[in-house]
Amino acid sequence: MYIDGQKKVELQDRISLYLDHQMTSDEESEFTKNVSENPEIKKWVETEKKFKTLLVNGILRPSVSDELIKKIHDNVQVYQTSSPEKN
């Protein structure tokens, strides 16, 4: 199946909407039906899904330091004790 430039862009947009869970249930049903009937589109969807997984798993997620947790907790406590409403 040949997909021309404009259709390719439209299809990529549909795939994004699908993988980002931004379709209505009707749109999703229609899209998944379309995907199941077209092996090329199905392959493309799988590739896009893997790319998303690569991002999610590959991104650095630094942990929150104990010091920061303590500072934030202290700030909330200080606000509580110094709140004008309480005084």
Binding site: P62, S63, V64
Partner: peptide, 26 residues
């Protein structure tokens, strides 16, 4: 807090700045 730290880290490229930004957010 952890999600905010990840977002802040990738905006600032710096662990200390990211923690300051998270603290500022709270």
């Amino acid at each position: 807090m952890e999600a905010l730290k990840t977002f802040a880290y990738h905006l600032t490229y710096n662990e200390n700045d990211a923690e300051d930004l998270v603290q500022e957010t709270y």
